[in-house]
Design a protein around this nucleic acid. Structure first.
Length: 288
DNA sequence: CAGGGCGTCCGGCTGC
DNA sequence: TGCAGCCGGACGCCCT
């Protein structure tokens, strides 16, 4: 599940692989991946484009072309890009192939078929719902204690659900929300609006910390995630609760528990993250 | 009405 | 060995 650190890792690899490359033509093998425009127009408009730079906003990749258009690509669960020499066998679940002028192919694979691509003009980016409603980047200045405090004020949803909301903060997903809440010592079912200022400030710091470290490490390779070079990330070995159900907490030794919050698998140390009244995840026989 | 929550899309994988 | 059911990011819709 690529989240901000993994998408950033992909962005960096694509920037190197694609800088200055020209697209000769595009083959769309699964139409549902292309949200806008329709496949025929998409292919027509893509032909002849040259890569200017590769950007990122939240979990969105922004491949910017020399003609002022942008390919907005979201990997969702398992989308990935790879470079292949022309004529080499096309891997299963390859849905879009960009034939480059230098003989290489940029291939988009996606087992779940959840990923999306939109091709728009720079000045049309504001039309893309999920993109323009994005909250601040966790590593940029707009994300600070006062902002988060304001954003979660009065909200009755569990803090985990709020942090997963891309309109509140861009780029967090299930893994890094669990990790940040663990580091902050906040149980994921705590009601967001009831966190006190000190806790919110601490949460902001630790979100920045874990995201920063994960970006540095090239992301976490769970579910066989790799960047455009086929390289995995290294952060999975630094995850403290995610995927560690039943294993001892690295801080206190108590077993990590897995439950469900906001419809997501959720990992908690009940000693380091005390459960609030009425929490579903509170110990008794719940684990795994 | 705001806001929380759940169904939907998919197929590899788990577990019975 | 076979297969129903689980899982999840974002979004649409339903319910309170």
């Amino acid at each position: 599940m690529p989240e901000l650190p993994e998408v950033e890792h992909v962005r960096q690899s694509l920037e190197v692989l694609l800088k200055g490359q020209t697209v000769e033509r595009v083959e769309v093998r699964l139409a549902r991946i292309i949200r806008y425009p329709d496949v025929a127009e998409f292919c027509e408009r893509m032909a002849g484009k040259r890569v200017q730079r590769v950007g990122r906003r939240g979990k969105y990749l922004l491949i910017e072309w020399d003609d002022d258009e942008v390919l907005v690509s979201h990997l969702r669960m398992e989308g990935r890009y790879g470079i292949a020499e022309s004529g080499t066998p096309v891997e299963p679940h390859t849905h879009v192939i960009f034939y480059l002028k230098n003989g290489q192919e940029l291939r988009y694979r996606d087992v779940r078929q959840f990923g999306t691509m939109d091709l728009v003009k720079q000045n049309e980016l504001s039309r893309l719902e999920g993109l323009y409603t994005l909250g601040p980047e966790p590593l940029e200045d707009g994300f600070h204690a006062n902002y988060l405090l304001q954003a979660i004020k009065g909200r009755k949803a569990p803090i985990k659900a709020v942090l997963l909301d891309q309109r509140v903060i861009a780029g967090l997903g299930n893994i890094y929300v669990d990790e940040a809440l663990f580091r902050a010592g906040v149980h994921p079912e705590r009601l967001a609006g009831k966190l006190v200022r000190k806790e919110v400030a601490r949460l902001v710091d630790l979100i920045r910390e874990v995201i920063g470290e994960a970006v540095e490490a090239g992301g976490s390779s769970v579910k066989s995630y790799v960047n455009g070079f086929g390289e995995p990330g290294n952060f999975q070995t630094s995850l403290r609760v995610y995927g560690r159900a039943g294993e001892p907490c690295l801080q206190c030794g108590k077993a990590i528990v897995k439950g469900r919050v906001a419809g997501r698998g959720t990992h908690v140390c009940l000693h380091c993250q005390p459960a609030p009244r009425g929490a579903a995840i509170r110990g008794r026989g719940l684990k795994r």
